[in-house]
Write a protein that binds this DNA or RNA. Structure first.
Lengths: 192, 192
DNA sequence: TGTTTTTTGTAACTAGAGTTCAAGAAAGGT
DNA sequence: ACCTTTCTTGAACTCTAGTTACAAAAAACA
């Protein structure tokens, strides 16, 4: 019938994700992609159509791979308050361990592209919505269990936490100081 | 002695600032700059050396022009608490009124370049530090006046507000909904 | 008015971006 | 074994980025 692909497209998207994540969209060149994926230019374009299309797949992959981790922590077991803390700690740990300071690819996409690319904007919004929803249900649980008092509504608090993690990612780009970032988490949690 | 420039370099930097602000660094082309500044390529490079150098000047100009507004509000008259609210409102109003969703050029620079460009990182840090300092002294004033109770230290709160405004700017890139953003300010202020 | 110095506009240049294409190679069905 | 199809490689192509070179012009001042 037909020749079979010599590379694994799924693995290739993972590698492309790393490149775009580290460099952003505009600053990434086809050459970098070719080098990182270890395939020829022809195969690259045959398999992925265009830089733009590959970026989109990479961003979706990032969502599946990285973004869910936050949600898993929030949806996990344990007291709601501790889960919220764990979620912030996860974001901080990711920023601190990130030697190249690539940050979060969704945050990066939001800032670099969301204002000019409707598809990217949509993807970013979707990601934010899911994270926000996870924050929200955790807060609601904590409220029901009497663990979280306060009177502020859960939706507002969820949006607030989403803002906080994005703010942390921006600050960490300039100054990924663990102590400073931990203090931020502490302060943010005090709204509860 | 020598011929004089036909264009105003200061005004040119302002225009360059607008272009970089709207498009980011990598996505901005010399052609766009030439068009926006209304000068020839020769003059552009004669006066500003390189795209990179012009970007740096544009970013510094942005700091002088836009960033001080926040600080002015915080350093202004009135009760500390109201000044903090006014500062958040300023950020939100800027985001909402920003039809092109260019966001804040410093936030954009932080995300796009701070991880690879030490000079930009330094500029961003400097900007953040000043804003943070303004938040801090406002909080300390409020504390002294008994207006702001709480026990959390002013430095931590200032860093927290800095995080919040950057988070707001990221969210606004994807979804600049005034109501949502106002709720965020409300929630953030409740830490006091 | 001439000299000097800098600007200006335009052309030119190199490098690489982003993509396409032609020719051969593997896979599998008949 | 052959045919078809899809893959691979690598060269090739176009276009523009980013910068430089240069000749003409124009302002300042002697």
């Amino acid at each position: 019938m037909a020749r079979t692909k010599e590379f694994d497209p799924d693995a290739a998207v993972d590698k492309a994700m790393e490149v775009f994540w580290a460099n952003g969209y505009a600053a990434t060149t086809p050459q970098q992609l070719v080098d990182a994926l270890g395939i020829g230019r022809g195969s690259l374009y045959n398999a992925f159509t265009s830089k733009r299309a590959l970026y989109e797949r990479a961003l979706r992959r990032y969502y599946e791979r990285e973004t869910v981790r936050l949600i898993q922590v929030l949806d996990g077991p344990g007291p709601a308050r501790e889960r919220l803390r764990a979620a912030l700690d996860l974001v901080i740990a990711a920023a601190v361990d990130d030697r190249e300071r690539r940050g979060c690819m969704v945050t990066n996409a939001a800032v670099e592209l969301a204002d000019r690319d409707e598809v990217v904007a949509h993807l970013v919004r979707r990601t934010f919505e899911r994270q926000e929803a996870a924050f929200r249900s955790t807060i609601e649980e904590g409220r029901r269990g009497g663990e979280i008092s306060g009177d502020r509504d859960a939706a507002a608090l969820a949006a607030f936490f989403l803002t906080t993690i994005n703010g942390i990612r921006v600050l960490a780009k300039a100054d990924p100081d663990p102590r400073r970032l931990s203090g931020l988490a502490e302060t943010a949690l005090s709204v509860l």
